[in-house]
Write a protein that binds this DNA or RNA. Structure first.
Lengths: 122, 122
DNA sequence: AATTAAAGATTACAGCCGTAAATGGTGCAT
DNA sequence: ATGCACCATTTACGGCTGTAATCTTTAATT
């Protein structure tokens, strides 16, 4: 089952702080959203149901941990996007951003380094 | 308003064949989906409501055309993804795919060429 | 002119999503 | 042991999505 946008913000918190109580998550998300506490509880429960996170009781509260790894999540999400929009390959996406002048100097330097390394690896 | 996944498949058809009748769209999507005709009509109507496409009467039928440009659509979609998952920059995404060994030889060659060109441009 | 066929428009409906209120259970303080 | 806080669980609800059936309009055919 897919992680929704709102749910993914909760995942981000848990990827940062693992484990976390619901209060931790609420505190963190209050910085960036206007969500009420019950909203965040709902999202935690939906993530539990989807088995994206786990909870173990700790006294009267729960400690939540991510089960889904961030790496796997971003891999799935970006692969889906590439498949749908760029024939499943990375280069056309980079070309698109290049045409749109959306490559920063930093990007270009980093890409150059990456490509260089790849040549060594074989 | 956002274009949904199913709607985006209809857009793809119209980006290919512009203008197209609903029959054209149905014929094309029948190759790749199991959607019934009414389903596709619904999607066309939702896209009209969202002003992503336009329709002009042609006798007893309509000719549909995209209003939203594919370039703009993929730009919005991929920018959203990059913002959410890679700090808004391209290089980290490429790095991710590189680590996951998901760069094809073709990708690497193309990236190399792209980077080279960028160096010339300035 | 009346009927039929074809296309479009309207209605449907369950599931997910964003957002949250209301209710229920349990450990802590008295 | 009892009530109180606190945290979790359940319920809610409107909107969007995927999927489609049904109704309506209109052009073509007899």
């Amino acid at each position: 089952m897919a992680i929704s946008d709102a749910e993914s913000l909760v995942m981000e918190v848990l990827w940062e702080k693992n484990p976390a109580t619901s209060d931790d998550v609420v505190a963190e998300l209050s910085k960036t959203t206007d969500w009420q506490e019950p909203t965040i509880k709902t999202l935690l429960n939906r993530l539990l149901k989807k088995r994206a996170i786990a909870a173990v009781r700790d006294g009267r509260r729960y400690l939540y941990r991510p089960l889904l790894k961030r790496e796997d999540y971003i891999d799935a999400a970006s692969t889906t996007l590439l498949d749908r929009l760029f024939g499943g390959r990375v280069a056309p996406l980079v070309a698109h951003f290049s045409e749109r002048r959306k490559l920063t100097k930093k990007d270009i330097a980093e890409l150059k380094r990456l490509i260089g390394e790849l040549d060594h690896d074989r």
